[in-house]
Amino acid sequence: MKNTVKKLVFVAFVALVSASFTNIEKETKEIKKDESKVVWKGYKVTGSHEGTIAIQSGNLVFEEDKLVGGEFVIDMTTINSTDLQGEYKGKLDGHLKSDDFFGVTNHPTASLVFKEVTASGKNAYTVSGDLTIKGKTNPITFVISIYGNKATTSLKVDRTKYGIEYKSGSFFDDLKDKAIYDEFDLVADLEF
């Protein structure tokens, strides 16, 4: 009986030590840029505008089918409005690319790097990461949902943290109905 107990303890010990030194493989899944979409929406006192922006590159990292990381680079030169046409579309698109907003000549990309990922539901994860826009990096937290080879997320971004103060009520008085709200939304539908 003592030998059986000793053998069981030894086998359990060996199994525990083996499991401790077993590396769990991480799998990096590239984002399919042409099948993925990022939509932005900005708000002002008198309404809103929305449009799209292209992903330059991106990936999600999994460990045993659990999300553990990711990073994205956004091509800021592709920012455009989808709610306007003609002359007004051209003016807004040009203004968004100017130094008043995203300054794409000097800052052609923005990036998002996942720092910590925590499961928060059956298919949901809370992500803490670093968002870089116009060369300024700030922490951001958001929820991402994964279903098969698709992911969806929505981020609220305070543009003033990235030096984008144009017509912000936080920095300028007497804007009245010309004010543009500090926060804008990014909604991403991703395929990998």
Rank of each mutant, 00 (worst) to 15 (best):
E87H: 14
E71L: 03
S145V: 14
I24T: 15
V61M: 09
V73Q: 13
T153G: 09
V104Y: 03
D34L: 10
D93E: 09
P139H: 11
F62W: 05
K41P: 01
F62R: 08
T52E: 13
D158E: 13
V68R: 08
A110Y: 12
G69A: 05
E71I: 02
K115G: 09
G103V: 00
G129C: 11
I133V: 15
F72N: 07
L155V: 11
L92R: 07
H95R: 05
I24K: 14
K32H: 09
V104N: 01
D65I: 11
S168R: 05
N138H: 14
T52L: 09
G70K: 01
V38N: 00
Q56C: 03
Y147T: 15
G69C: 08
T137K: 01
E116H: 15
A119R: 10
L155S: 08
E30G: 05
A110S: 15
E87S: 14
L131T: 10
T82M: 08
L92K: 01
L60D: 00
L96S: 04
G47P: 02
V104T: 09
I55Y: 03
N106M: 02
K41D: 05
D65L: 13
K97L: 05
D83Q: 08
S48C: 03
F72S: 10
Y166C: 02
W40R: 05
G47N: 06
I146Q: 01
R159H: 00
T118W: 06
G70M: 04
V39Q: 02
I144G: 03
E30T: 14
N59T: 12
I79E: 01
D99Y: 07
K66W: 00
K150E: 15
I144Q: 03
G69P: 08
V73F: 05
G86E: 04
I74A: 09
Y88E: 14
D83N: 13
S98I: 08
Y125T: 09
G69F: 10
E87A: 15
G69I: 10
K115W: 06
K26M: 13
K122Q: 14
F62L: 10
T105A: 15
T118Y: 03
E116K: 15
L60E: 02
S81N: 13
T160L: 02
M76S: 02
N149K: 14
L84E: 07
K91D: 07
R159V: 04
R159P: 02
E30R: 12
E30D: 10
Y88N: 15
L131P: 04
D75T: 02
T160R: 12
A151R: 04
I55V: 13
T118K: 15
G121M: 08
A119W: 03
G94I: 08
A110W: 08
K167C: 12
D75S: 02
G129M: 11
E71Y: 10
E87P: 04
V45M: 06
G94M: 00
L84S: 04
R159L: 07
Q56K: 14
T78E: 01
F101P: 01
G90C: 12
G90V: 12
M76P: 03
D93G: 06
A124E: 11
G47T: 03
N123M: 04
K26Y: 09
H49L: 04
L96R: 00
E35S: 11
P108R: 12
H49M: 06
T126C: 06
